[in-house]
């Protein structure tokens, strides 16, 4: 009994409510004519699409930089990688690989700058991260217009310059990961093995890194900066490293998202992408200064599960699509819950 109570406490009541809500949605679904197989595969596909973006939260939370509201910066690195890969004429699976390779220097560079900035504003990271994300998106809006891209699939036909708002990834890296080792059970249930494997690989890399010497130093910086300084860890460098990792993961994350979604969304596209990722990891049980891979997996499954299930189930029951409102309330409510928790390190 105490074990259960202990588990309940560590899991937190918001998660239990959300979990039960999701469970009830899955139970109701067959009775209102929603196909479970489709729902499950949708959930899995959306899990695959978003999980790497959520994973991008982990390093920064570990080093005590708080929730990565500046995720759009990483996404922009990914967008640069993706568009450059298409611009240089790569196609098919190769274009995905090249997109990752091309996005990497941008991710690391942006991350370095972003990390150095965050080191100067310790204590106020989250608000500044939010606005770094916003201003970089707005800055890139100008850049997408004037950068000398000229690949015909990407630019406005009539103007002859400036990138389109959405660019199809078809013929380039559409479904590169989705189709890799895809398993189809029955008619409706599809398991996007490739995407899940890719996430597993990324998650393993992060996990392994966190268990190296530098990784444990990072955790030390996040959980006890005074102790970390005393044991001779360069705090600023460790924090910068974590921000670079987060930014790079954000870049990879958006590429995975695009290869499944089918479109590269430029301009205002990345604007609000941080909030869903932030709330997903919080739903998974992370707090402002503690996060694990398990949090990422559970959180993304729960969050994306709710996003998939509510519209279809709600629509069949009350013929109204209230899912958007539910999403806003649940995800922001979750962030609020996390922000108001007393954390071990007060900031």
């Amino acid at each position: 009994m105490t074990k259960i109570r202990k588990f309940m406490k560590s899991f937190g009541w918001p998660r239990i409510i959300i979990g039960l809500f999701l469970l009830s949605l899955f139970i109701i679904a067959p009775f209102v004519g929603v196909n479970l197989g489709t729902s499950l595969s949708d959930t899995l596909i959306r899990f695959g699409m978003n999980s790497v973006l959520v994973l991008a939260m982990v390093p920064m939370i570990h080093s005590g930089c708080g929730l990565n509201f500046g995720l759009p910066l990483g996404i922009i690195a990914g967008l640069l990688g993706g568009t450059l890969s298409i611009q240089f004429g790569f196609t098919g699976g190769l274009s995905f690989l090249m997109a990752i390779i091309l996005a990497t220097p941008f991710g690391l560079l942006f991350g370095w700058g972003y990390g150095s900035l965050l080191n100067r504003v310790k204590g106020g990271e989250m608000m500044i991260a939010t606005y770094v994300g916003f201003s970089s998106v707005a800055f890139m809006c100008m850049m997408w217009l004037i950068l000398p891209y000229n690949h015909p699939t990407m630019i406005w036909g009539y103007a002859g310059s400036g990138l389109r708002t959405t660019i199809s990834t078809e013929g380039f890296y559409l479904h590169t990961l989705n189709n890799f080792l895809q398993i189809q059970i029955g008619e409706k249930l599809i398991i996007p093995t490739g995407m899940i494997l890719f996430f597993a690989l990324m998650a393993f890399l992060v996990w392994a890194f966190l268990h190296t010497k530098t990784g444990t130093a990072m955790t030390a910086v996040g959980s006890n900066p005074v102790f970390a300084r005393a044991s001779g860890i360069n705090i600023d460098r460790t924090r910068t490293l974590s921000v670079m990792m987060s930014t790079w993961l954000g870049a990879i994350g958006i590429l995975v998202y695009q290869q499944s979604f089918g479109f590269i969304q430029l301009y205002m596209g990345p604007f609000y992408m941080a909030l869903p990722a932030v709330s997903a990891i919080l739903i998974g049980g992370a707090s402002v200064n503690k996060a694990s891979i398990t949090n990422v997996v559970i959180g993304t499954l729960f969050f994306q599960g709710i996003l998939t299930m509510t519209p279809s189930v709600m629509n069949s029951i009350i013929h109204t699509d209230m899912s958007e409102v539910i999403r806003i309330v649940v995800s922001n409510g979750m962030i609020l819950y996390a922000l108001t928790r007393k954390s071990e390190v007060s900031r």
């Binding site: 939010t130 309330v329 922001n332 409510g333 922000l339």
Partner: peptide
């Protein structure tokens, strides 16, 4: 600040 910002969304 960040909290009041999220409250706005909520």
């Amino acid at each position: 600040m960040v909290t009041s910002y999220i409250i706005g969304f909520f």
